[in-house]
Structure formats: C-alpha cells, structure tokens
Design a binder for these strands. Sequence first.
RNA 1: GGCCCCUUCGUCUAGCGGUUUAGGAUAUCUGGUUCUCAUCCAGAAGAUCGCGGGUUCGAAUCCCGCAGGGGUCACCA
Length: 478
Amino acid sequence: MNVRTRFSPSPTGFLHVGGIRTALFAWLLARQSGEGRFILRLEDTDKAREVTGSDQHIFDSLKALGLIYDEGPDIGGPFAPYRQSERLDTYKKWAEKLVDQGRAYVDPYSPEEVQKFREQAQIEKKPFLYRNHRPENPPEWDGSKPLRFKSDPKAYKWHDEVMGDLSTGPEVIDDFILIKSDGFPTYNFAHIIDDLLMECTHVIRGQEFLASVPNYLNLYEALAIEKPLLATVPHILGPDGNKKLSKRDGAKDVMDYIREGYLPEALVNFIASLGWNDGSEQEVFSIQELIDKFSLRRVQKSGAKFDEKRLLWINGTHIRNLTLDDIYTRCKGFWPAEAADYDDTYRKKVLELVQERLKYFAELPELTSFFFKDLPVDMELINNDKQLKKFSHDELKELLEKTKTTLEQSDFSTADLTKKLNLLLETTGQKPRVLFSLIRIATTQAPASPGLADTLVILGKETTLKRINTTRVMLETK
RNA sequence: GGCCCCUUCGUCUAGCGGUUUAGGAUAUCUGGUUCUCAUCCAGAAGAUCGCGGGUUCGAAUCCCGCAGGGGUCACCA
C-alpha cells in the first residue's frame, strides 16, 4: 500500500505543540514507507474564524520542524488545490450526488428555530438530534439554506489504530450539515471528499472528532466509499490540570521554541515521546530512529501532560550530541552582541566550554557574555559567598595580589596555568573552594562559569590580569 | 443529562495471567568529579497499579460494577 497521510489544520491561529503532534505522526507514517506521501491541506471553510497570515505560519512551522510535506497549498501537487475554499465546486458536485440519491435534503428552518429545538432537548436532558425534526417536504436546494445529510441511523463497530475496537449505537447518528448556507462545506463533509479524492490512506486526528466518527461511517456508506484507516490520538494536556493544552496554560507557538533556540529534532523527539514509546527503554531518538520505530499501535490512549522540564532535558541531550561545528552553525544569531567583535575560532572555543551546560540557545548570552566584555564588579558575589564572606577584604585583596604576580609568570597554556594555579594553592595555603572561587568571580563576575583553568585560557593573559586587578582595586576602596 | 474514551511513582512511561519485593526516564535530594554552574558517575526517596467485587492455585494484567477525568451532542474544526 502506498501510504498517503495528511495534516489538515484550519488557518485559525498558530500551531501549538498539541496540534503539531498529529502532523508529526502523519509525517512519520509517510516517511517510514518508501513511497509514502505527506500532504498538507488547509481546511479554511470557516471564514469567520480565519486568521490572516496563519496559513503562512503553518507552512513555516512545519518546515521549521522538518516536517516537510510533499503536496500542499504553497507547493501544489497532483490533487491541487489543497485549500478547501478553492474546491467548492467539487463539494457541490458530491453534494448534488447525495441529493439525487435522496440522501441529502435542505434544512428549511432558521438558525433560531433550530436553536429552539436544541434548547428543548437540553431542557428534557436529552441529546439534541436534528433528525427528530426532519422536514416532511423540504424545498429544492438553491444554496440559500443549509444542506443536510439524510442519515441512516445504525449501530457501528469499527477499528481505530490507536483506540482499538470501538462501538456505538444508532443514537449518535444524526443529520449533520454538509453545505452551509454560505455555500461552504462543513469539515464533516469536506474532509471525507478530500480524503477520498486525495487518496489518503490514513486519517490521524485529535480526540475531539471521536464522537463524530459514526456519522462519518454513515456517510462513507452512503457514498459507497471505502474508509481510510482511522487513528484517534488523545490530547496533550496542560501542565496543571487535565484540560486540553491551550494558550492559557502557556501553550506556546512552536515557532517560539524555535526562536528560543530549541532544536527541531529535540522538539520532535519530545512531542513524539508524549504518548508514544517503542517499548524499549530508549528515551532519546534521532529523527531517523523515530521514522524507523514509530507505530500508531504503540501510541498511548490517554492524554499526556506537557512537561516543559522534560523538553528542556531532551533538548540539552540533543545539544550535547551535536558536533562542535554543527552546534556552532546552528546557534548563529544567539550570541551576545559583543561576540561580533571576535572571530570564529574564539567563539568556537567558548562554545565548546558551554556546550554541556546549554539547554537552549537563548541561554547563550547569559552563559558567555563575560568572554566578550568586562562586566562591572559585583561585590555581592563575594559578600554572599559562603566561604569568601569569612575573609576580610584585605585578606582577599592580598590573595588576588599573589595571584596576579604568579599568573604574570604564566604563558597561559592549559598545562602551565593549571600548574600555576596549583602552585598558588600551595603558596597561599588556601583551599580551592576559597582561592578558585575568588579568582573565578574576579575574572568572570558571573554566578556560574565553566572550569577555571579553561576559562582563563580563553580569556587570555591580558584580560585575566586586568580583571583581577579591577577587583583588587574594588576591594581596596570598599 | 445521553453516548463514547481514558485511569501504573510529581511528570512521561514499561508491563499483555506467574521471571514483579511493579522496571526505566525525568524532576527532587545526597555523595564524588581541585572552585561555581552544568555534564558525568554512584546512591536515596517516590506508585498498596482510581475504588469495590468476582474468575483463577495465582491479577496491574481477564470479567462486572462504581467513582473520577476528558470528549461530544454547532450553518467550528
């Protein structure tokens, strides 16, 4: 079978982590079969909810994550157009087919009248079924009123690739709207036609559609078309509570994560592992491994909570797995402004030191700024240090003076610097915890930094001695 | 309210009737890595498997009830 999967968002806003997961699963499925195709289709049948620019944003987000689609609105394909608003004639043709078969009819009621029926059902504590109000002599379809599917209520048993065997009774089948009074089809109708015409083999979508599936099955029967493989994936939930992840819970635009310097492969790894595993104890996967190992059958039936700390960890491990050259290319644009004054060699050396403590690229400036500029002396760093606060400023000043004279003799190679630092421990009789902390703070003015010798080698003799001297002077005046 | 789905450490999960005193990862805490942060290593703590019945020699695993959570009942997708 030639796998053809699709991702069919409506352009009503940004793509967040929850939505992107359906896209990811569909993409993985297409990629794991040689001839597989992944299709992007825009379901823009609700003019009122459409957000200008969100179509472009969807294209960008998918591309940024590497979820490259083979057919889509902006790139075309054998079944173009891929925007439902440009396919109205097609839906109309299929709707007429149903009318001719006596399987579709015009809804003669006004929205207010239907609303009354609905309210009545609510009062009676019964689910609303339009078919209880089926008109006896519906008018001809002239496009000014909605067209409804004339359902054939019955019980269904079907298989869902994720949820397993499902079944429902006839009470859930209703006469849903096929074509709205504005001439646009509903999702319920349009996606069935498009999936058929675009030869989609799998339909992967969120849990919110599960209750509608029996209606779709009824429509597939009426049109005598074979249904695709159905897969219903649970929602990703917000970190607090059990609610579907939404903007309120801090669900961010995936592009925000890209902008903060999360790696696409880490995001993909994280999103996939939210509700999927391969049965082994592996947690970190490359894209290729995900393609090779993914299967709908191992997707969790229950929703998973979005845990940003876990994403942070996964991103960190992916960053650590990168080669220095690779990470250097990819973190361009995240350096502190002053880094522009330094050459590639210097920046690479800095990057090498911070690679293992980098969780996402946006942290680069706070982790490295002292390599590129002199930070103002912050006496609090010394005064709040548990060990250093035990010493008087005079004592500390003296330690820095000794450090200065000793390091002046160094050629600032790693080996020699290490030797000199050890020598200082001997001559001053201080513990590393005291002496190294002092030197580290004096030379970086940062609460945290890479190893002392490594840092000083990169800073170089001139800068190191200058900064030691600056701090020494500050200790004098205070 | 009807219908449908779900329920294992805080979190993501393994588990498909006995090898389970329920495993891993993360998060947390402790110790080690000449200083801080991180990494790495070692260790600790953390789930009576939602609850109650049953089936069975034996159940997280099978069956039945219940409870809790979620979804849905739109001219939204």
